[in-house]
Structures are given as C-alpha cells and as structure tokens.
Design a protein around this nucleic acid. Structure first.
Lengths: 365, 365
DNA sequence: GTGAAAGCGCTAACAG
DNA sequence: CTGTTAGCGCTTTCAC
C-alpha cells in the first residue's frame, strides 16, 4: 500500500497533551481563545508526534480544499516555446505556497479536453482557477464561467463576460507599445514599422493598438503580421524591407520576433540602430541582453503577474487580502454597478489588475 | 463562500434511484456484481443529478488521494530556458489525467524550499512523487527518500540510494552519444570534438561518457565544457577552434549548444558540414529543423518519458499496470536481491526505464 | 476557555 | 446480489 504508516491524528495529539480534540483543533488552526499554557502543551505534542492535519478530513467538513487549479490551454502553442508561462507559474506557485494552497495543474490540448476540464472545475475539487487561454475564440473561458468557480485569467481574455464580471491580471500591453513607439519617434525616426504578434491573442492586438495610438495615420504597409516567433519575425521583417526599403525603425511585438528581425536586418546589410532602430517587448532574458546588438525592449514583470493572479483569486476566499499597498500595478476596482452581495453564489466582483511596463534602453534603439 | 451550491451526494443519488448508498458506490466505482438493471438506474440518476464524487470523503476512508506531486527543483536553471520540462510535464499530465489522478505541482528554489517540500511529501497529501532534480549534489532526492513516498525520478538522479531502490525514467544518453559520435567518425572525421553539458548533471556526464566510449583516447583538448545554453555553446566552440583549429566535427551535448556552435563556426568562416560536421542532442523542435544548416541530432521522446514516469509510479498504486508491451524502452527489472516483500513499508522495487534514442539525419552532419 | 457530541460524504465489512 | 452499519479525521455548534 502506498500510504505511509499510520500518522498521528488529532486524537493522538489531544491524548498526548491531555486536552480535548477541539482544543487541539483550535490551536492548530490558530483560533484565538486558548489559554497560552494549554496552547504551548498542544504545540509541543504536535511537534513530538510530527502531527500533520489530514486535508481530506478537514476538507470534508469545511468544504474548502485549499487547492486551486491552474489551467493552461493548448500548451504546444506557446508554453513550450518561451519561458513566459513558466515564469508566471513560478509567481503563482510562490503565492500559493505561502498560503499553503495546493497548485493543481491542468494542461489541455484541443477541444476534447475542454469538456473534461469543465467537468473537473465544476466538480468542486478546487476552490478556484487560474486560467491561461490565449486565443480569442477559445471556448474554455465560457465553459469555466459556467462552472461557476472563482476564476482569474492570465492576460485579458478575448471573451468578456456578459456582466463584465471577468477578472484578470495583465500587463499594460497598449501603454508599453506606446512607450516603445514614442521612444522610436523621439529618436527622430519617421518610418516606424510594427511586427505584430498573432492577432487572435489580445496581447498582440493591444500592442498593435498602442502602436497605432502613436502613429495613427501611418503607412499601413509598415505593419506586418508575425506570430511571436523568431521565424515569424524574420518573415515579417523581410516583407517589411521589400515593401518599404526606407523603414528606419521597427517595433516588434515581442523579443523573439525582434531577434528574427535583427537577423534579417543584418543579412540585408542594415546597421542596427544606425540604419534601423529596433525595440522589442517582454525583456526576455537572456535573449534580449545577448542579442546582437543588445535589445532595447519593454519590460513586464511576468512573475509578479503570476503572484497577483493567485493573490487576486484568494482574496475572496478568506485566505487573506491583497493589500492596496501590495498591488504595484493599478488595481482598477469593482466594475459592476451592483455588487450583488445578496446572492450567495453571486459572481465575484470584477477586477482587472494591469501591471505597468517600462522601457529598458540598450543598444538597438 | 467559494464553494458552489450544495452538490448532490451519494445519498441523493441512492434515493433517486431507489437503492442504497452502497449500491451507488459500487456502480460509481465500477465494482462488478451489480445487476445491470439496477446499475442502469443508478447511472441514470447520477447523470440526472450531475453527481460527482466528493474526493475528500472518499480519500478519508480509502486513505488514497489520487494525486501525485510533481517536484521541479530550481526551475530557474532550466525549466524556463528550454521546453524540455514542459514537454515532460505534458506527458505526465496525459497519463495522470487518463487515470483521473491530480497533478500537484511543486516548484522549489533553493535550500529553503527543500524542507518545505519534504514536509509536504511526508505529510501524506499525495500518493507519490515525480521528481526532477538536476544536480548531482541536490539534497532533495535524499529528503524525499526519507519521506518514504513512492517516487520516480526524471532522469537518472546523481544520488543512488543505498539499496539501489531508486526508480527513474531516462533516455539512453550514453548510447545516444555513441550513435552521434559513431556517425561522425563514420563520415571519416578524425578530429571529433565534444561540447559537454554542465557536468554536475548526469545527462551531461552520460553523454560525455558515450563520446569517450567511441573516442577512448582522443585528444583531451577536443572536449570543452558547455552548459546546455547557446551562449555556452558559443564559448566552448570558440575555445575549441582556438585550441584545435583542425577540428572537423563536433558533437554538442544538446541542440541549444549546437546552435551556439553553429553560429561561431559560421563566423569563423567554416562551412557546415563540409569543413566541420555538427551533431546535436534532443531534436528540439523547431530549433533543430530551422537551424542553419538544419541540425543532425539525437532524438529522444521527451513526452513519452513523462508518460512513463507517471505510469511507473502508478504501477504500484493499484491504479493499473504498465504492460510490458507498452514499455517501448527496455524496462530493466527489479534490481534488488531481496524484494523485501515482507515489510509493509518496504521501498518499492527498483526500476529503471531507459528509452532508446535515435539519430535524425539532416544537413549538419 | 474548554470539552462533548454531531456529523461532513464516502467506502468496506458484514449480514441478509 | 443488495442493504445496513460503522467509522475515516476533522471542525463546529453547544453546553458546561
């Protein structure tokens, strides 16, 4: 049998400490109102016996699980291509660990899995979900919404719930893009191109919007669609050079594309930044630092986004509070007219946390 | 409160179907020996009510959790640098999902976390652990061993338990390296260099050993230490070119290093494969395919390794059997003289699953 | 403040 | 074959 030898129960600790189970329970759970003398005895017994609470038993009565699901849709696409998710996972993991909440990982690939995940989430096995869904047409967010589980999305989901009750953590993609493009125009560049990301992802769309904010009536030929990969960046850069040989600056939607663009520019004999200035997005290390030339880029704190997702989710679970002071980004408050506090199962208040970005100047622009 | 509205219990289903809880339980758990007529009624009621078993309640009595921990040590090092872990995670996830077992992810960084992880694993919250520990001096394996939890390692751990009771899944690093180097010598190359991985990892050591198997008394200057990164590959390649300008082939310990080597070779004016033939390891896509020139490399099935880790772990848990037919690799049987079947808490039989590798010929060699 | 007692939802003997 | 019964280990009223 896999289970380890009989571990001590509350009962055992109680006997050892000469008190009742109830008292031990109180001490273990930090309930105030136990005389310090007793509490000390209990703590001693706990340590002596190596007592660890049985989560299942606790869960059975509290109806909480101290576990949240992290759902990553279509891993192949991107999880495995860049360190983005991994970093975010780490932030999540840190926050959950600090609160003694389990991280249950759910990887999905394709439609078949959606149903399974929906069932799992609706099954009441976890207290909430952190969801990464990349594509605008992903049905997963809708499914999860129906499951009626507290949820926080990583990145603005394409799907915007009816009541605006969607909660997510994102970085300021649009503002970051503006910073990047303004930097380029500030350098005196007049032909600033943009290599987009895959436009079925909100982050790519937002960055494109930011570009357009600054160059509202730019030459449309200066925009080439990429896909967040180096290969896509190469393709886009080639197209750009062909269409507009006079391009003197490029804002790439992420560092990976920028790397591809850099390569093509070099091949074409352009000097960076003298002939063409390049700015990326993400500050993906070590890529950005070691690019040739080192890449000027827009930094976002990915790990912090993960931390905040977890914090935001747990805020409603009586696990603690995300202090305003902790939120480095701007936490836009509730977004609903009616908090619907009356309904027991009311959807959680909407909340968007948008973390700031900032430009990291290196050599490429 | 986060928990959803009262979900139906066994009791409710039983009432609906007009049978006893026990019967419903039997049907739900697939116990044979329920008359089909009744079983059908029960299944119907289950569907009608949307009944989902309460894992906590079940766990409380079965003393199983249907959950396994996946422990990834020091994520920064590598998890986030290449898609390796992510793929393996996916294999694990698939296998666990198929068996309805939860994947609890534990990320650690540094010594502080070791204790916490040890406590968690010893705490009896999961039925087993899948552990990735990269470094030879990592204390984690030892800690986990002490926790007395069924464990399977990803990759041969540096730590070899006293009784040889360590279980792991790995690819045939040494054999793969031999294939690579033999291919190079078969091409008539007489000065075959090796760019190693970080030598505090068994995979790097094994690949070096494989290289030495084929070139037992090669020029020691033909071996340069890398670290599995492109930058490390560049450094090593530069050193190699300086020490041995006549090098005519390179076996890089992974594709990432190979990419770095390729870049340096190009810079130095060498043609690949004409002047210097290059072979990598991993067949990391799309990197290997899109390298310039496309990289000849040693392929290992990473996702399958993950699947097998999970399968191997669950084999002892009464969850099913890893049929010999399923094991595509060679599953070396138990390794202990005494199976120690008498002791209730006897460590699980040792088992090493070593998956085969094979050379993928492209252009670089 | 502390203890006694009643379950949480499920499985696993054991009867029938 | 099916139902009855007795807990699994914990939290939580409710008395004291």
């Amino acid at each position: 049998m896999p289970e380890a030898a009989a571990r001590p129960t509350l009962e055992a600790v109680a006997a050892r400490a000469g008190v009742s189970r109830a008292t031990v329970s109180r001490v273990v759970n930090g309930d105030a109102g136990v005389r310090e003398a007793l509490a000390a005895k209990v703590r001693h017994a706990v340590r002596e016996l190596g007592y660890v609470p049985n989560r299942a038993a606790r869960s059975l009565v509290t109806r909480r699980h101290d576990a949240v699901a992290v759902v990553i849709a279509e891993p192949e696409t991107r999880v495995f291509a860049d360190p983005f998710f991994a970093r975010q996972l780490r932030g999540i993991s840190k926050e959950l660990t600090a609160r003694d909440v389990q991280l249950v990982l759910l990887l999905t690939e394709g439609r078949d899995d959606h149903e399974r995940v929906g069932r799992y989430l609706a099954g009441g096995h976890v207290d909430g979900a952190l969801v990464f869904s990349l594509h605008l047409d992903d049905p997963l967010p809708g499914i999860i919404h129906c499951a009626g589980l507290p949820t926080v999305f990583g990145g603005r989901p394409g799907w915007t719930g009816g009541a605006g009750s969607v909660r997510y953590v994102d970085c300021d993609n649009r503002g970051g893009a503006r910073q990047a493009v303004r930097h380029l125009t500030g350098l005196g560049r007049g032909r600033v191109a943009h290599i987009t990301g895959p436009l079925d992802q909100t982050s790519a769309v937002d960055r494109l919007d930011g570009y357009r904010d600054v160059v509202p009536d730019g030459d449309p030929r200066l925009v080439a669609e990429g896909d967040f990969t180096p290969a896509g960046g190469e393709r886009a850069m080639r197209a750009l050079l062909e269409r507009c040989p006079d391009v003197d600056a490029v804002f790439a939607a992420n560092d990976l594309s920028a790397a591809g663009a850099l390569r093509v520019l070099r091949e074409s004999g352009r000097r960076v930044p003298e002939d063409v200035a390049v700015v990326g997005f993400d500050d993906m290390l070590p890529l950005a630092e070691q690019a040739d030339p080192p890449l000027t880029t827009v930094r976002q704190d990915i790990e912090e986004m993960g931390r905040l997702m977890a914090a935001l989710l747990l805020r409603d679970q009586g696990q603690g509070v995300v202090g305003q002071g902790q939120l480095r980004g701007r936490a836009q408050g509730p977004d609903q007219g009616q908090p619907q506090a009356g309904t027991p199962d009311a959807p959680k208040e909407a909340a968007r946390v948008v973390l700031p970005t900032h430009l990291v100047r290196r050599v490429s622009a």
